[in-house]
Design a protein around this nucleic acid. Structure first.
Length: 605
RNA sequence: GGGGGCGUAGCUCAAUUGGUUAGAGCGCUGCCCUGUCACGGCAGAGGUUGCGGGUUCGAGUCCCGUCGCUCCCGCCA
């Protein structure tokens, strides 16, 4: 009983034809004398009719006792529905199949949760949905997400192939590089006591491929990081990984703008406007207080450092005297802020080392604030003018060292936007995508506790050429040739032009990052060596594929765009991994566990 | 590692703030029903209130611990 049509195919044209459908029992309506079963597959559903005047009692009884989600094959004649019984909600609603024969391909047990009603299914606890992921995947939303994901992958391959890229797989069993994210380790059987690591990304291999003359590489690369999870982070995830030779930053921007434009068009038929806006790191911080700004709404940070330079309010003028800045945002229409919300924001500010969070509520034509009495008329006038203050507004201040002040207000800006959205005072168009590049990141950041410089991006990022002389004497002013791509406040990806000169790379490793020479040799010796034998200038980028699909699908969590995601504690509830292994497996791997074996099991001899 | 939220029938939730036999809708089982499409009607079964302690005359409710899910901070070169 192989199907002749799928379940969203039968139309008036087919009336009179004999057809066979295969699919799941979506719903069953037993009216006693007549029985309807909607057969569903991934394309849609079709109503079938069992009429006792046409089928024998045994078949009728078998059909009547089917549970939802059983898999059946039905053969019968297509006929027009009797007048007045059309169902306009589904495309097959004008016809039905008068069943002559039915085979039960798999009789389903009673389900752990209902899947036929999308609204009911969507509310089921995620734990249960993950345990029975195969049921969850039948929901139209998840099925659609996976198809969008597939379409995006295919579009990527097609586009990059046309641009002359080769798709090349790199090893998953790699060498441990203890910098950066914690790694998953894989013990070696044939090398007792030695380990592979799963790659955090194919970074080093793709650079070696450039030395290998590949020129244009890409991969939909699986990456692994053993860090704590979030809604937008999984321990294993996918990147669109790209590397090119003989290029500069502009080539990357143009390529990625083309790729994203194509993906958005092919998957959700959305026209992305290119070229993308570009912001320097400094401008992003100054205006939005974050290096991945959501530019779909304003509420921008405004600088008042000059205005409060000699203010009678010593918290502000004192900070300016110390070289700090004074900044403010206008949370439009948020003067009705609650005590609790104000406390939350103050805590945010304090977590960045601020002493408090100064504010002005504009209510009843009055500026209500504990600090406004210290302000001169000129100061008030400049606040009024630069912030466009109106009745009902809430003004929030940060006075601190530049980066802290920016980041405090950046977080508060996002918090306010969230609240204002919940209150219906701020609306963001769900079909709007604000793409932008963030450029000119500082190459290095200083770690106060460790008293040393570390790479803002990664140690292979090339400095801006004219800044190379400052690498050792003034690391702070060296800009990196690093770029991030940001959409609606989500960091979609990032990359850089790489260092291709072994001497510059050695300087960065040993003199700037202060890694001992022997450590550099052990971990990166093969790269430095490769760069001695003809390394082309090169650069690349990696895009978070899961995050990208979540944006395309309008999902909050990337778990909804991954077929088999893991929980916040990195467990797979379907297969119940991770799990213990047999003692023999451990012996083969030369491992001895320090944790106790569970009850009923013998611990290792 | 830290903080918040959740955990009651197969599912989604309720239980008057510590008080009788823990309820409802959906699902499930049985019976009825010939044009439904969220079919309808009648009846019924179904509970270690995540788990383990404690307080109390009495705990779903309060306390301690623990497990799981989730959100956030740290972390994620």
């Amino acid at each position: 009983m192989k199907r002749t049509h799928h379940c969203n195919e039968i139309r008036a044209d087919h009336i009179g034809q004999e057809v066979t459908l295969n699919g799941w029992v979506h719903s069953r309506r037993d009216l006693g004398g007549v029985l309807f079963i909607d057969v569903r597959d991934r394309e849609g559903r079709t109503q079938t009719v069992f009429d006792p005047s046409d089928v024998d009692q045994a078949l009728f009884d078998r059909a009547a006792s089917l549970h939802s989600e059983s898999v059946i094959a039905v053969r019968g004649k297509v006929r027009q529905r009797p007048e007045g019984t059309d169902n306009d909600k589904i495309p097959t609603g004008h016809v039905e199949i008068l069943v002559a024969e039915m085979e039960v391909l798999n009789a389903a047990d009673v389900l752990p949760f209902q899947v036929d009603d999308p609204e009911v299914a969507a509310k089921v606890h995620e734990e249960l949905r993950l345990k029975h992921r195969y049921l969850d995947l039948r929901r139209p939303e998840l099925a659609r997400n996976l198809r969008i994901r597939s379409k995006a992958a295919t579009t990527t391959r097609f586009f990059l192939d046309a641009e002359g890229f080769s798709e090349i797989e790199t090893p998953l069993l790699f060498k441990s590089t203890p910098e950066g994210a914690r790694e998953f380790l894989v013990p070696s059987r044939v090398h007792p006591g030695e380990f592979y690591a799963l790659p955090q990304s194919p970074q080093q291999f793709k650079q070696i491929l450039m030395v290998g003359g590949v020129e244009r590489y890409f991969q939909l690369a699986r990456c692994f990081r053993d860090e704590d999870l979030r809604a937008d982070r999984q321990p294993e995830f996918t990147q669109i990984d790209i590397e090119m030779s003989f290029i500069d930053r502009e080539d990357i921007y143009a390529l990625i703008e083309g790729l994203l434009k194509e993906i958005w068009k092919k998957t959700i038929d959305h026209e992305v406007t290119t070229p993308f806006l570009r912001l320097t790191f400094e401008e992003a911080l100054n205006r939005f207080g974050i290096d991945k700004p959501d530019t779909r709404f304003a509420m921008e940070l405004v600088d008042f450092t000059e205005d409060f330079k000699s203010s009678a309010f010593k918290v502000f003028s004192g900070m300016v005297a110390k070289g700090g800045v004074v900044k403010a945002i206008n949370a439009k229409a948020y003067a009705d802020v609650t005590q609790g919300q104000m406390e939350t924001m103050t805590e945010l500010a304090k977590s960045f080392g601020a002493k408090g969070l100064a504010y002005i509520k504009v209510e009843g034509g009055e500026w209500k604030s504990p600090i406004v009495k210290f302000f001169s008329d000129a100061e008030k006038a400049s606040l009024q003018e630069k912030l466009g203050i109106e009745e009902g507004d809430l003004i929030l201040f940060a006075a601190d060292e530049w980066l802290n002040a920016c980041e405090i207000l950046g977080k508060i800006r996002l918090y306010c936007a969230e609240i204002l959205q919940a209150q219906g005072k701020l609306t963001l168009d769900p079909h709007r995508f604000d793409f932008l590049w963030v450029t000119d990141f500082p190459l290095l950041s200083f770690d106060q506790e460790m008293n040393r410089w570390y790479s803002s991006h990664h140690p292979f990022t090339a400095p801006v050429a004219e800044d190379i002389p400052f690498l050792t004497e003034d690391p702070k002013r060296v800009r990196g040739q690093h770029y991030d791509i940001v959409v609606n406040g989500v960091e979609l990806g990032g990359g850089s032009i790489r260092i291709h000169q072994p001497d510059v790379q050695k300087t960065v490793f040993e003199q700037v990052l202060q890694l001992p020479e022997e450590v550099v040799q052990e971990r990166f010796g093969y790269m430095l060596e490769a760069f001695r034998y003809g390394a082309p200038p090169h650069g690349g980028i990696a895009l978070g594929f899961d995050r990208m699909i979540a944006l395309l699908c309008g999902c909050q969590s990337i778990r909804d765009v991954i077929a088999f995601p893991k929980t916040a504690k990195a467990a797979d509830l379907l297969s119940e991994s991770p799990a213990r292994v047999e003692a023999k497996q451990l012996r083969d791997l030369h491992l001895h566990l320090k944790v106790a074996a569970p009850k009923g099991e013998k611990s290792e001899p």
